[in-house]
Design a protein around this nucleic acid. Structure first.
Lengths: 189, 189
DNA sequence: ACCTTATCTTGACATTGACAAGATGGCGAA
DNA sequence: TTCGCCATCTTGTCAATGTCAAGATAAGGT
């Protein structure tokens, strides 16, 4: 019998528990403001238990990124039929699932060659590229429009999350993003 | 006499040497991929010497951010007379001074209430706001245009630096950014 | 010449990520 | 049912890190 656990030697679902603890910790203090040992404590297991499921810290963050990209791709696909809403879905996902997003776009934190990460990433990119193509004024501007649309929503998201926009304090990110997208891409085509 | 130093007990300009070592280290492995002790080693001083100048790690990153915002504001001000070029200057600064930029927009790393940080930040924000106002189609869209312009260039920069854009491999960021800005804001007004 | 004080060193401590070796018990095979 | 395999988890350990405290050094004014 362990000196820590309340539920016997085996946790039952430690992998999930550690990921959830990581998401919580990332919400509180960013993707680097916590330790593996702290997560183990929160999950009620010994300090080395998480290693068995994730290898090392980077492995855990890779699992978070993979899960995040899958959810992200789902969210974008759900909005894919209304071109204008793809960008809004992008922003909404980042704000509703902030800890995932904060890991996903910091590639030095995890292993980008992970199969789970790759598949979600490709799926999400597909929606964005197809959506931007529908916005392009001329087919020749396809690629440029994709870059512009992606930059616009990604930049808005980053600035909002980092608190750089004064509106972050009280405003509604989704509404602001929608207005912004209409202003820019309402004019472009 | 020390066992480490080649130049006597006093370094002479340790503060600068540590900041430079930090910038170098951030270039190589991100804003979190190094240790204070490693910087001390690179500068040829003992492990606790940097603390005297910066207090702690956050203090060092605060110094980096302050210096970065000052340089950033200078760069934007130099471009302020040509509205279209402000955004390009934003992108160019981030790419030419990547380690600064990577710290500046990660506020959890440093102390945002530092006077040096604040003054540079306000100066830079002034240029951006004034520039965007000149781009707005109607005065009522001032604020929205500012957010859009800032989001566009900031997003482009973040995506480029993180390697998310395929163009990051070989392309010319400045030229691509310029085309993108013209596409978007050439249409808007 | 002296001494104040900024600068740097030495030493120590708790914490961390990672590894190795051992303990536990779930679960299928016989 | 009984046995044994092996995924799961624990305990113990190590070097490295950030931070603090106390002492050593020398630069520069008086």
């Amino acid at each position: 019998m362990s000196g820590i656990s309340q539920q016997g030697y085996h946790h039952g679902n430690l992998r999930r528990a550690v990921i959830d603890a990581a998401l919580q910790a990332i919400s509180e203090s960013g993707p680097a403001g916590w330790s593996l040992r702290e997560l183990a404590r929160r999950a009620g297991v010994s300090h080395a238990a998480p290693a068995h499921h994730f290898g090392d810290k980077q492995g855990l963050l890779t699992a978070v990124a993979a899960e995040g990209f899958a959810m992200f791709a789902d969210a974008l696909e759900r909005a894919a039929d209304d071109v204008w809403e793809i960008g809004v879905a992008y922003v909404r996902f980042a704000i509703d699932h902030r800890p995932y997003f904060e890991v996903m776009f910091r590639p030095e934190l995890y292993r980008g060659d992970d199969p789970g990460v790759r598949s979600g990433h490709e799926r999400a990119a597909g929606v964005l590229i197809a959506g931007a193509a529908a916005l392009a004024p001329r087919p020749a501007d396809d690629r440029l429009t994709t870059v512009a649309a992606w930059s616009l929503v990604h930049g808005f998201t980053s600035l909002w999350l980092s608190g750089a926009l004064p509106e972050s304090a009280d405003g509604d990110p989704e509404a602001l993003a929608r207005s912004m997208i209409r202003l820019v891409f309402g004019a472009i085509r």
